Simulated scan of single mutants.
Amino acid sequence: MSKKLVRVAFLDADTGARIGHSELPLGQLPESFQAATTLELAGATWSVERAEPPTSAQFGATGTLTLTLRRIETAPPGDVLYSLPTLCATLPAVAGAPAGADRLELHEDDWRQVELVSADLGDEVQTELRAVRQSFEQHVRRDEHGRIYGFQGIHIRSQPVRPLSGTVSRSRLLSLLPPGARSRGGIGFRGQPGIVPSSFAVSVGRVLLYGLADGDSLAVLAVHTEPGPAAEPQPELVAALERSMREADLLLVDWCRVALVPPASIGDYLAATGAVGRS
């Protein structure tokens, strides 16, 4: 480790005031502050907003370094609330996409929150649903009117790994959708460039169907309601989903609502959640 000392000045990003200084061995400092960096100072945690100069080669040569810091405020564990009762444990990897490729952007938290699952995976689904119910029973926080505003605990779902255990044909599904169905390209996540390989998305009105395909065989088929004006009735879409679910023996699982929906009830479910208007 280098024994050369660097004179480090610490400035408060909010006030510009000098909050301390120190002489530190060059070997104890990072090679670069260009990546996100935090440090402990005076019993608090600070993020480095700016380093002048930014690299060890530079401040090693000058012997001086100025760090502009912003204090990271941390809340007691009991005060941290989650907005959802459950999340999917794993997200698919994102890869580079050709220039101009169509890409539908999802928030990471929305991945597989409402999905179609093979009926023969019922035991796995029920195990996960019981765990989600515990978030409502043990960790929910409500206001004075009884409305939920957060959860102190959250269930991370690990099952089912492949929600469609049998053969579900992508081309068959698309052929059943009404003529107004619109391809949206592949799936991407907010803040991450690129597209998930083998992903797809198609929308009918405010209803988005998306997932992962292995050739023509679907591995994931999920449903998301996009924001927008009042939803229109979509009887053809409802009929297509009901038929697809019956043919492949599927159930719809809304994890956050702890709901398991059979094919005959898919229209009522979509209307009740505002995804489609009532006929």
Rank of each mutant, 00 (worst) to 15 (best):
M1V: 10
V6D: 02
V8H: 00
T15H: 04
T15P: 04
G16L: 07
R18G: 10
I19H: 06
G20T: 06
G20H: 02
E23S: 14
P25T: 13
Q28E: 14
L29D: 00
P30Q: 08
E31W: 05
F33K: 04
Q34F: 04
A35T: 14
A36P: 10
T37L: 01
T38W: 10
E40R: 15
L41V: 07
T45M: 13
E49V: 08
E49I: 04
A51L: 05
A51R: 00
A51C: 05
E52A: 09
P53F: 00
P53C: 03
T55F: 02
S56M: 04
F59W: 09
F59S: 06
T64L: 08
T66I: 08
A75Y: 10
P77R: 11
D79W: 04
L87C: 04
C88L: 05
A89C: 07
L91H: 10
L91S: 08
P92C: 07
A93E: 09
V94Q: 01
A95N: 12
G96V: 07
G96N: 12
A97S: 13
A97Y: 02
G100T: 07
R103L: 05
R103A: 01
L104H: 11
E105H: 04
E108Q: 14
W111F: 13
R112Q: 14
Q113K: 09
A119I: 07
L121H: 02
D123P: 00
E124K: 15
E124F: 13
E128F: 03
L129M: 15
V132G: 02
Q138I: 13
V140K: 11
D143S: 14
E144F: 12
R147Y: 11
I148K: 09
Y149C: 06
G153V: 11
G153W: 06
I154C: 13
I154V: 14
P160K: 11
V161A: 15
V161T: 13
R162M: 08
T167H: 13
R170G: 08
R170A: 08
R172M: 09
L173Q: 01
L177V: 04
G180N: 11
S183I: 00
S183F: 08
R184G: 00
G186Y: 00
G188H: 00
P193A: 15
P197E: 06
S198D: 15
S199D: 01
S199A: 11
F200V: 05
F200C: 01
S203Q: 15
V204R: 00
V204S: 02
L208T: 06
Y210K: 01
A213R: 12
G215T: 11
D216V: 10
S217G: 12
L218I: 04
V220R: 02
L221I: 13
A222K: 03
T225G: 15
T225C: 12
T225W: 01
P227Y: 14
P227H: 14
P229K: 14
Q234N: 09
Q234S: 13
P235C: 12
L241Q: 04
E242F: 07
M245F: 11
R246N: 15
E247F: 08
A248H: 03
D249I: 06
L250N: 09
L252M: 15
L252N: 03
W255C: 03
C256L: 13
V258Y: 07
A264H: 13
D268A: 15
L270R: 01
A271K: 07
T273H: 06
G274T: 11
V276M: 04
G277H: 03
R278P: 03
R278C: 00
